[in-house]
């Protein structure tokens, strides 16, 4: 176990956020994430998962409540959001995480390159550094975007459905990377629709417009899932397995 584990990296208290004055897209969110933890963020589409991430990044026009962060927060988007036709290599993309730390009047130099290379190595893609981003598999692209966040030197990572649209073996590799980052003392929030997966993490935040629950995965009962998802969910095997019916595809 690395030093600093258990130290609170993210504390959120009474957070409400929205895009227009007086209209909260998400309200009453209170949870914390210690170093070395993975927290699943569950909820239906439009339930506030994206709004929570945007609020934590300071990107929502309206925000109340308190958010305390130890260190920087980095965001890992779904790989489909990036332009696959850009002539940039995996290393180029990882380097983008170092640009902000470089003073804007100085082009990013060797230090940034080394940090990006280390980040790619961290996600097991050192040998793919020169390959064009668009030519990598979906799972590899996702890991490159994780490397970009690591290159930002952030201890808190927000991952937007990192396992959606990747095949089984790729998902396993991504989960392996997340487990290693947990060992390194990162705090991760992972938005997901996979309830089975959420049970393997350390804590679960359930959102449905407001916070429904912040519980350890063992307390993720069928009743709680039903309250979180409303009518969008089918529970199988007496609550051991649950399938979320997605109305909306990206």
């Amino acid at each position: 176990m690395s030093a600093g584990k258990g130290e609170k990296l993210l504390e959120v208290e009474g957070l409400s956020a929205g895009y227009r004055p007086g209209v909260a897209a998400l309200s009453d969110v209170t949870f914390e994430a210690p170093a070395g933890s993975i927290t699943a963020v569950l909820g239906p589409n439009g339930g506030g998962k994206t709004t929570l991430f945007r609020a934590l990044l300071g990107e929502t026009p309206q925000r109340s409540g308190t958010v305390r962060v130890n260190g920087a927060v980095a965001y890992v988007p779904q790989t489909e959001r990036a332009r696959l036709d850009f002539p940039v290599s995996a290393l180029d993309v990882a380097r983008m995480g170092t640009y902000a730390a470089t003073p804007w009047w100085r082009p990013s130099g060797r230090a940034g390159r080394e940090r990006a290379e280390a980040a790619l190595e961290r996600v097991g893609l050192a040998d793919r550094a020169g390959v064009r981003f668009g030519e990598l598999s979906g799972g590899q692209r996702q890991r490159v975007l994780i490397a970009r966040a690591l290159a930002q030197d952030a201890r808190v990572l927000l991952l937007d459905e990192p396992l959606s649209g990747v095949d089984g073996p790729s998902a396993e590799r991504i989960l392996g990377v997340l487990a290693e980052l947990r060992e390194d003392g990162h705090a991760m929030l992972v938005s997901t629709h996979d309830i089975h997966q959420a049970r393997a993490f350390d804590a679960v935040v359930c959102l449905h417009g407001s916070q429904v629950a912040f519980v350890p995965p063992a307390e993720l009962t069928p009743e709680l899932l039903a309250r979180t998802y409303g009518g969008e969910m089918i529970v199988l095997d007496g609550g051991e397995r649950a399938v979320v019916v997605q109305h909306h595809e990206h």
Binding site: Y75, P77, R81, F86, M96, G97, A100, T102, Q152
Partner: peptide, 22 residues
Amino acid sequence: LFFRDTWIATGFDAPSARALGL
């Protein structure tokens, strides 16, 4: 010299530009 990196990073993934501190 000053902005080429930011031009590319923003063009590649505009929604993340702010989270990247660009």
